[in-house]
Structures are given as structure tokens and as C-alpha cells.
């Protein structure tokens, strides 16, 4: 299967979980995402046991909240990343959060944009603006100078403020900051430029 076929399959699987409580589809999502969520949590400092427990919780949250997934707004990867990130924050801070906190996240995300109405018959591809964004973002990252792409990875996937990234790479903090800013500006330009040329 090509990458984009795989992506579509994962969207279909998540929608099948949402609509039909499809356990086989969930099993496939588990097999794909749980080990990646575990890897993410390990990088951010969780021990193996803790990372597995949290990954398990993340996947159960996926099962419970699948009805909130909207393929136009996010790819499954982005949606699950968000759940994993929030679980990790909760676990690390060990703070009591108001019960609203989870819904707040949803509202922030929902941000009063167009309705994601069901449109049967319309190609998933066309509905999934998120999938297009992800694809273009992947292209854009591939075009970044390697040192800028590295900073992005370190920034998201290690529990590292920029100062520590600088120490780890033996670079001045200003260099790390400017690489991060340059990388972000390039990604935005690339995506913005593409949007403009599409319009």
C-alpha cells in the first residue's frame, strides 16, 4: 500500500471506530499508533513501564472519543498526537485538572470554523483538508536544511527547552532559536505559498 492509501485506511479505521465501534479497526489503529505513542513518551522522559501505561490510556481515549474526530480538521496522527501530548502533560504535572480541561481543548481546536457536515459520496481526500496540509508539511520538511529539521524534531520529541537543545548540540542559544524560527518561517511560507497558488 502506498503511504497515502495507508493514511486513508487509518482515517477510515478511526471513522469506523466512531460510527460502528469497530474493534478490528481499533486493533489496527492500536498496532500502528500505540508503539509510536510509546516511543514519543519514552523520548519525553517516561520510563518503559510508564510509557506503556500512558500509551494504553491514550489508545483507550481514542476509543472513547472517536466520535469527536473530524477528518477535515486533523489527520489521525495529529489527533492522537494531541491526546498523547495532553496525557503526558497531565501525568508529568501530576496536577488536579478541572474536569473541563479536556473539553476546553476541544473548543480551542474547534475554533468556530466551517461545519464538518457529513457528505456521503464526496471523496475522503477532498474532505480532508488536514490530510493535504500534512502532505504538504511533509514535503516542506523534506526541503528544509537538515540542521533545521533536526531542531524541529528535538523540539517536539525531546523534553528540551531550547537552552538544553543548544547545550546538547554545542550551539549558541541564539543559533538554535534562529534555526527554529527559520524552519517555522519556511514551513509557513511553503504552505502559505501553496495555498495562494491553489486559490
Amino acid at each position: 500500500m502506498s503511504r497515502s492509501e495507508e493514511e486513508r485506511t487509518r482515517i477510515e479505521d478511526l471513522l469506523a471506530v466512531a460510527r460502528h465501534r469497530d474493534r478490528e479497526a481499533f486493533g489496527r489503529l492500536f498496532d500502528y499508533y500505540a508503539p509510536r505513542v510509546k516511543a514519543y513518551l519514552r523520548r519525553l522522559g517516561a520510563d518503559p513501564q510508564q510509557a506503556e501505561e500512558l500509551a494504553q490510556e491514550v489508545m483507550l481515549t481514542v476509543w472513547r472519543r472517536a466520535a469527536q474526530y473530524d477528518p477535515r480538521r486533523a489527520t489521525p496522527g495529529t489527533w492522537i498526537f494531541r491526546i498523547a501530548r495532553n496525557r503526558r502533560i497531565d501525568a508529568l504535572r501530576r496536577e488536579r485538572r478541572p474536569p473541563e480541561a479536556e473539553e476546553v481543548e476541544v473548543e480551542t481546536e474547534a475554533g468556530g470554523e466551517e461545519e464538518a457536515a457529513e457528505r456521503p459520496g464526496e471523496a475522503l481526500e477532498a474532505r480532508s483538508e488536514a490530510l493535504l496540509m500534512e502532505r504538504r508539511l511533509r514535503e516542506a520538511i523534506a526541503r528544509l536544511p537538515p540542521e533545521q529539521a533536526e531542531i524541529l524534531r528535538l523540539y517536539y520529541l525531546e523534553e528540551m527547552p531550547q537552552g538544553e537543545i543548544a547545550d546538547t548540540l554545542g550551539l549558541p542559544l541564539g543559533t538554535v532559536k534562529s534555526r527554529l524560527r527559520l524552519a517555522l518561517a519556511k514551513l509557513r511560507d511553503y504552505l502559505g505559498g501553496n495555498e495562494a497558488s491553489r486559490a
Partner: peptide, 11 residues
């Protein structure tokens, strides 16, 4: 949204 998408992609 772009930055969250980036997170998902790196994940």
C-alpha cells in the same frame, strides 16, 4: 493547526 500537524507528523 500547522504546528499540531507537525507534531502528528513527527510522531
Amino acid at each position: 493547526r500547522l504546528y499540531e500537524t507537525l507534531g502528528g507528523l513527527l510522531l
